[in-house]
Amino acid sequence: MLLAGLHSAGFALFHAAFWKLFGWKHELRKLALPTRAITQILNLRLIYVFAGIAALCFLFPAEIAGTPLGRGLLAFMALFWVGRTIEQFVFLRVNHPMVHALTALFVLGAALFALPLFG
């Protein structure tokens, strides 16, 4: 569970850096207000979800791996990462090393959350 928690914490930090990494202060101004707001709100909610999942993995590893509710959470997160991997190929068809690295990290997330289900 530690690695799954670190993975989630890493994505929380990565999403927290989006404003700077992607120049959102300037780039989002090009969008209509509703799209600009929705983009930032969704990103903030993802930070919250990733940070929460990380905290659960760190604080309740036995409960997550050993209870029906915890195993449901593992399956949910594994499917989240499988879906994110598929969406990468649908929406971001870019041949760039960083895109490939992110895709690998999405696959890693699916594996980290799925592996305890088979152990």
Rank of each mutant, 00 (worst) to 15 (best):
residue 81 W to V: 00
residue 85 T to Y: 15
residue 96 H to N: 12
residue 93 R to H: 13
residue 28 L to M: 14
residue 68 P to H: 05
residue 110 A to N: 10
residue 104 A to S: 14
residue 74 L to F: 06
residue 80 F to G: 01
residue 34 P to A: 01
residue 2 L to W: 11
residue 61 P to D: 07
residue 13 L to M: 08
residue 4 A to Q: 02
residue 11 F to A: 00
residue 70 G to T: 03
residue 99 V to Y: 09
residue 46 L to R: 07
residue 97 P to M: 10
residue 56 L to E: 06
residue 39 T to P: 00
residue 3 L to K: 13
residue 110 A to M: 11
residue 113 F to A: 02
residue 93 R to N: 15
residue 24 W to K: 01
residue 12 A to G: 11
residue 117 L to H: 10
residue 45 R to V: 14
residue 89 F to D: 12
residue 1 M to N: 02
residue 71 R to Q: 15
residue 46 L to T: 14
residue 25 K to F: 12
residue 14 F to V: 03
residue 1 M to R: 06
residue 93 R to L: 06
residue 19 W to D: 13
residue 17 A to F: 14
residue 69 L to I: 12
residue 58 F to T: 05
residue 2 L to V: 04
residue 31 L to K: 05
residue 8 S to M: 06
residue 110 A to T: 07
residue 61 P to F: 06
residue 30 K to S: 09
residue 76 F to Y: 10
residue 20 K to W: 15
residue 43 N to V: 05
residue 103 T to I: 07
residue 2 L to R: 14
residue 81 W to P: 05
residue 95 N to M: 03
residue 20 K to A: 13
residue 31 L to G: 01
residue 33 L to I: 06
residue 114 A to D: 11
residue 55 A to S: 04
residue 34 P to N: 02
residue 12 A to W: 11
residue 83 G to I: 04
residue 53 I to F: 13
residue 83 G to A: 11
residue 4 A to L: 08
residue 35 T to G: 07
residue 95 N to H: 12
residue 56 L to Y: 04
residue 55 A to V: 10
residue 45 R to I: 15
residue 15 H to S: 08
residue 15 H to Q: 13
residue 34 P to Y: 05
residue 2 L to N: 13
residue 31 L to H: 08
residue 58 F to G: 07
residue 119 G to C: 04
residue 1 M to K: 03
residue 14 F to N: 01
residue 105 L to M: 14
residue 90 V to L: 15
residue 14 F to M: 12
residue 35 T to I: 06
residue 60 F to G: 00
residue 79 L to E: 05
residue 37 A to H: 09
residue 68 P to Y: 03
residue 76 F to E: 11
residue 57 C to V: 00
residue 69 L to D: 08
residue 111 A to G: 09
residue 72 G to S: 07
residue 107 V to C: 12
residue 27 E to W: 11
residue 115 L to I: 12
residue 91 F to R: 06
residue 66 G to V: 07
residue 17 A to W: 12
residue 66 G to L: 05
residue 67 T to M: 07
residue 101 A to N: 05
residue 38 I to A: 13
residue 91 F to Q: 01
residue 92 L to H: 11
residue 38 I to G: 02
residue 34 P to F: 03
residue 68 P to T: 06
residue 36 R to S: 11
residue 72 G to R: 00
residue 58 F to S: 10
residue 96 H to P: 01
residue 2 L to M: 06
residue 40 Q to G: 12
residue 20 K to P: 00
residue 92 L to E: 08
residue 57 C to A: 14
residue 68 P to V: 03
residue 96 H to L: 03
residue 19 W to P: 00
residue 87 E to D: 13
residue 31 L to N: 02
residue 106 F to Q: 13
residue 89 F to S: 12
residue 3 L to S: 14
residue 18 F to K: 04
residue 115 L to D: 04
residue 12 A to F: 07
residue 109 G to H: 09
residue 74 L to W: 05
residue 73 L to M: 15
residue 42 L to S: 15
residue 11 F to N: 02
residue 29 R to M: 11
residue 89 F to Q: 10
residue 80 F to E: 09
residue 75 A to S: 10
residue 70 G to E: 12
residue 114 A to W: 09
residue 97 P to G: 06
residue 83 G to R: 08
residue 48 Y to K: 02
residue 61 P to N: 06
residue 12 A to M: 07
residue 33 L to C: 00
residue 51 A to H: 02
